[in-house]
Amino acid sequence: MALVGDAYEYFDPRFRDLTVPIAEVEVLFDGCRWAEGPVWFDDGGYLVWSDIPNNRMLRWVPDMGVGVFRADSNFANGNTRDREGRLVSCEHGARRVTRTEPDGTITVIADRYKGGRLNSPNDVVVKSDGTIWFTDPTYGILSDYEGHRAEPEQAGCFVFRVDPATGEIAVVADDFVKPNGLAFSPDESKLYISDTGLSHDPDGPHHIRVFDVGDDNALSGGEVFVEVAPGVPDGFRVDVQGNLWSSAQDGVRVFDAEGRPLGRIKMPQMVANLTFGGPKRNRLFIASTHTLCAVYVGVSGAQRP
């Protein structure tokens, strides 16, 4: 079912080369409370995503439809895959980051820092060296809707990095209000991290910052890359050309590598997150409030070697 016929708004002529004007936004599933964390499994030819308030993860298979991937997901939010293709998930309910092994068992990657429980890990990426980077705002402990209400045990809302060899967890950024989505540039020299503090404070941030990534994986810089409005830049991805595709209240907003706005994919529901998938990674899967949608675009998502 097509959701939007005239799907695009062009701010810059370059956006036309990034779209397929005749491609419509298609609804793949409509039955979530808050869709989040889409991740594509190319080897299996399917997509997995989170439905946080319903405490489940769903799976969409082309020509077969949607089924339950994990019935009790611990209120999972963001998902990705590591260098071995294993699913890595942020769990609000258990306040941890986990890895699903090939036999289905769950390995805890991180759940505490300096003796205290994490807030509620939100989104996660894995660098080509195997390091795991995740954000830890308080959304999952603010109420019982997306997790379990609790008092924070951390001194703030941090961005963390985990060493896969030692399991050591380190803070890489500590000056965010509500760190949320994150993604590397195609060459991994830059890390983009969003701050969605506007969600609970009308004067809070709603921007994406950009950091330089050193050879030792230390971050420097951190200036504002773009402000996203209306709404907040919850989750986002980067394509092979370095353009950034961000969630927003009115759809998916696209920026070039210098932060200049290129265009928008119109959506009638607030977008939470998105990912590139399909055999050529040129299909954009969009988690949009109650729905999982998809649209073919004119560029492929960045796939690190």
Score class of each variant (00 low, 15 high):
residue 131 T to R: 07
residue 130 G to I: 08
residue 94 A to E: 13
residue 43 D to S: 10
residue 64 M to W: 13
residue 177 V to T: 10
residue 17 D to N: 05
residue 165 A to W: 13
residue 261 P to M: 15
residue 203 D to C: 14
residue 285 F to C: 04
residue 242 G to C: 11
residue 286 I to E: 05
residue 62 P to W: 15
residue 175 D to A: 10
residue 265 I to N: 02
residue 190 K to Y: 09
residue 122 N to L: 01
residue 186 P to W: 04
residue 69 F to Q: 03
residue 165 A to P: 10
residue 243 N to F: 13
residue 257 A to Y: 02
residue 101 E to M: 09
residue 119 N to W: 00
residue 146 E to P: 00
residue 145 Y to A: 08
residue 263 G to D: 04
residue 220 S to V: 11
residue 18 L to C: 01
residue 230 P to S: 15
residue 196 T to Y: 15
residue 145 Y to F: 13
residue 292 L to P: 00
residue 127 K to R: 09
residue 280 K to H: 08
residue 116 G to A: 09
residue 292 L to V: 06
residue 93 G to A: 05
residue 11 F to C: 15
residue 283 R to N: 04
residue 299 V to A: 15
residue 241 Q to I: 15
residue 230 P to Y: 07
residue 185 S to A: 14
residue 76 A to Q: 06
residue 277 G to T: 14
residue 213 V to W: 02
residue 137 P to T: 12
residue 120 S to P: 00
residue 214 G to C: 13
residue 211 F to R: 11
residue 232 V to E: 11
residue 175 D to L: 10
residue 130 G to L: 05
residue 151 E to G: 14
residue 123 D to Q: 05
residue 244 L to Q: 04
residue 38 P to S: 07
residue 151 E to I: 02
residue 273 N to D: 10
residue 294 A to Y: 03
residue 235 G to W: 01
residue 187 D to H: 09
residue 207 H to M: 02
residue 35 A to W: 01
residue 175 D to V: 07
residue 166 T to Y: 08
residue 23 A to C: 15
residue 158 F to N: 00
residue 126 V to T: 02
residue 219 L to Y: 09
residue 19 T to A: 10
residue 229 A to G: 14
residue 188 E to L: 01
residue 35 A to Y: 02
residue 89 S to C: 15
residue 54 N to P: 01
residue 269 Q to E: 13
residue 166 T to P: 10
